[in-house]
């Protein structure tokens, strides 16, 4: 009986498990072999580390890495700040019960695909975009070229703005349930003991959402570090972010470049798995902590 039970549950997991193993880990392993130069189809069946060495030695790689870290870090910071604000405002207005349409409105960016979000930002922030036109209207600039380059810029502001807009509701979505569990009892208690609204936010609300916030920002960081679509649309040719740089290498058609591309993606994967594991630990921790 108990043997059958255990086997039955193992059977339940099996389809999902097999799909993940073949399609995901299979792909990763396949890529790993190729990153070591293993292409038996063209007679390359020795494993070499040289592609990693080559990839790391490229000036383009270092520039890409630098750009990548900068964009991911700034995006995470802005998305987190905006997300916290959003979650706190939602909490303060208790939108869920009273104004559900407003909650939906603020979650709008969650639904919009990244490519679309990126293009919206082009229309808002490019040198002939809405902001430039407004700046002209109030007399700050006299020609499009005077408007600062925000999208398709070497610094990566266009990507940062897109990610901040797109991921802030995501951050808020992870934080809001934690806040929603806090009843008015906490606020009453804090006030009785002398807490002003700002004290309440800084000593109670922010620490309470910290584990969830860490999870959310790690996810945003990992995503912005490895995403392809937005930098492909909003970046410049050089330096490109690592995923775009790797994609360019891969599609150049040369087997050596392909191995290098896969080597770069493997490095990224190791980093993301590490961050992912940390994020998951924080997530479980915030999940397990005893709330009233």
């Amino acid at each position: 009986m108990s043997m059958w039970r255990r086997n039955k549950y193992a059977l339940f997991v099996l389809p999902a498990f097999l799909l993940t193993i073949t399609l995901f880990f299979g792909g990763l392993a396949d890529g790993l072999l190729k990153s070591f130069g293993y292409f038996p189809a063209i007679g390359q069946d020795t494993l070499r580390l040289s592609f990693y060495q080559q990839a790391l030695a490229e000036r383009a790689f270092q520039d890409s890495l630098f750009l990548n870290l900068r964009v991911a870090l700034l995006s995470t910071i802005f998305a987190s700040i905006l997300g916290i604000t959003l979650a706190l405002v939602l909490y303060a207005f208790q939108l869920r019960s009273k104004r559900p349409w407003l909650l939906r409105l603020l979650q709008l960016p969650l639904t919009i695909p990244h490519l679309a979000a990126g293009y919206f930002m082009v229309l808002v922030f490019s040198q002939s975009g809405l902001m430039a036109r407004l700046a002209y209207a109030v007399g700050w600039i006299d020609a499009p070229a005077e408007f600062p380059v925000i999208v398709n810029d070497a610094f990566g502001w266009g990507m940062v703005v897109t990610y901040a807009w797109k991921e802030a509701p995501f951050v808020a979505l992870l934080l809001y349930p934690v806040l929603a569990r806090i009843g008015s009892g906490w606020y009453d208690t804090a006030r009785i003991y002398g807490a002003r609204p700002w004290n309440y936010i800084s000593t109670i609300l922010l620490p309470a959402i910290r584990p969830a916030l860490l999870t959310a920002s790690l996810i945003v960081f990992v995503y912005t570090l490895t995403a392809f679509e937005v930098p492909y649309l909003l970046g410049v040719t050089y330096p490109a972010t690592l995923p775009v740089y790797a994609y360019q290498l891969y599609t150049s058609g040369n087997f050596e470049d392909r191995s290098q591309a896969l080597a770069i993606f493997w490095l990224l994967t190791v980093v993301t798995l590490l961050f992912g594991w940390i994020a998951y630990r924080f997530y479980r921790k915030s999940y397990d902590r005893g709330w009233e």
């Binding site: 392993a29 396949d30 392809f228 591309a261 993606f265």
Partner: peptide, 18 residues
């Protein structure tokens, strides 16, 4: 962990491999 791992890994890494 195995089932949830793909959340964090860029899809392109897997697809280039496969």
């Amino acid at each position: 962990a195995i089932l949830l791992a793909p959340i964090f890994v860029p899809a392109l890494a897997v697809v280039m491999g496969i």
